[in-house]
Amino acid sequence: MAASENLLEQTTRTPSPGAGHRRRVVVVGYDGLELLDVASVTSSLDLANRLGATPTYDIQFATLSGQGVRCDSGLDLHAQVALPDVPGTLHTLVVSGGLGHAAAAADPRLISQIQRLARTSSRVASVCTGATILAAAGLLNGRRATTHWHHADELARAYPAIRVDPAPIYVQDGRIWTSGGVTAALDLALAFIEADHGAERARWVAMGLVTYLQRPGNQAQMSMFIRARRPEHDIVRRVLDHVTAHPDADLSTTRLAAIAGVSERHLTRLVVEHTGQPPARMVRHARLQAAATALVTTDRPISSIAKATGFRSAETLRQAFNTWFGIPPTHYRNVHRRR
């Protein structure tokens, strides 16, 4: 309790801009929604209320009928209001994702209500596959948007007018925000709080939730440490083991082919078949893995880590990190050590 009281005391000494302004937030649900998509948003905004001088968010969970819905985990979630009864002027409209997103996007009554509320909402957002519903409402046409990485290709095929980017945790394009899968909703909510009240309020909310302070929106949804499964082919596995063990060595395709005892062409075909990427890209990712591990687990200078992991210079490593993670190595080291 003492820690909570101190957190509240520290936060309320300097109220955020607009602390007295009530922002109406409606989170939209349907059968088959993902519970975390809802809870990550509502719990974050509620904590922002409790950590401020006065509450600033009026939060409601709405469904088309006003009746409860069944989450895709099997739990039932009660609604507070029916969408047709929600007045037209909102600050933030959030559409949740979940396994039921396709059926929801095909419901003209739901789409009509989303379109009505979006017209007069200051901010419109989707979590995860909720982007499909915004797309069905025509709200993402001509915009850059993201969704859960697993559904990104599907969204891009169904709605070619959208510039679908499967990598970022969240994307803001004007007043329209979209986020990646599931727990990316937490990052989205923290971004809302920072936009509305400043970075300090967002920081206290992240601390209160015992979570990593808002990841950059353009950081990759999938960590490079979990996205690739170990290849089953013996030659590819041996090559990958060599690359991982010797990131600072000559890892050209010519050299790797010689180590594997096959032609460059054959090695390239095998690596693409079993890892989904050519040898040079596989090597670059392995070197980034080694550099990321060294950044978090050692105090070595960036230049030393760059040399030990096969990058020509600290600047080359910085450029590679910015491309993959969206942040420079020093920032990566700081935030992951805090985490």
Rank of each mutant, 00 (worst) to 15 (best):
V243R: 00
R163H: 15
G198I: 04
D165E: 11
D107T: 02
I176W: 06
L256Q: 14
E194M: 01
G276L: 05
A39G: 05
N141T: 05
V272K: 15
L270F: 09
R287D: 01
F325N: 03
Q80F: 13
M1I: 04
A105Q: 04
A245L: 11
P216Q: 14
L295K: 04
G100M: 04
L99F: 04
L134T: 08
T56M: 07
V335D: 04
A39I: 13
V127N: 05
A260M: 15
A167W: 15
P17L: 09
A62D: 10
S179F: 11
S4V: 11
A294F: 01
G32I: 10
S179P: 10
L186C: 04
G20N: 07
A104V: 08
Q113T: 06
A290R: 11
T254D: 08
I226T: 15
A189V: 02
S16A: 08
L213P: 02
S122G: 13
S252V: 14
S179Q: 07
A292W: 10
D85F: 03
A104L: 09
L188F: 09
V271A: 08
D241V: 01
C128G: 08
I305W: 12
P247H: 00
A137C: 06
V164M: 13
D37F: 02
T120D: 15
M1D: 11
T253Y: 04
S96P: 00
A314T: 01
A191T: 08
T297E: 06
A185Y: 03
T330Y: 06
Y212H: 09
A103P: 01
P87Y: 14
G181V: 08
G20K: 11
